[in-house]
Amino acid sequence: MRIPILKLHDYLLISVQVELDDQTALQFQEDLLNKIHQEGSSGVVIDLTSVEMIDSFIAKVLGDVVEMSNLMGAKVVLTGIQPAVAITLIDMGIMLDEVPTALDLEQGLDKLQQELEG
């Protein structure tokens, strides 16, 4: 299974709509980095509204994606993390420190704009 990556001007938009199994998560990591490289994107919004569970493996993949994208010069904002998922991550002691987040896609795009201009 592959997660679709949409292009909008200088940005890439991703809405994760599938249950994230390990293979899908790793494939997504690779696809996103390739796409950033191809398109020369400056920003990425990953929307997690439909994701019902983030365990330590998925958290690591997401954290790595953010770090790798930053290295390539693209800022990443995560949006739509469900309350139950946020609470579980904190219980687990997993801090997605330094990862910019926003409530929804629209605010995520605003945040990117601010970060890139500011």
């Binding site: 019902e52 569970m53 139950a84």
Partner: peptide, 17 residues
């Protein structure tokens, strides 16, 4: 509750992995 469902599902995922 939905929060506990997420906790339980996550715990299972960790053990299974």
């Amino acid at each position: 509750s939905s929060v506990d469902q997420a906790r339980i599902t996550t715990a299972i995922s960790e053990l299974a992995r």
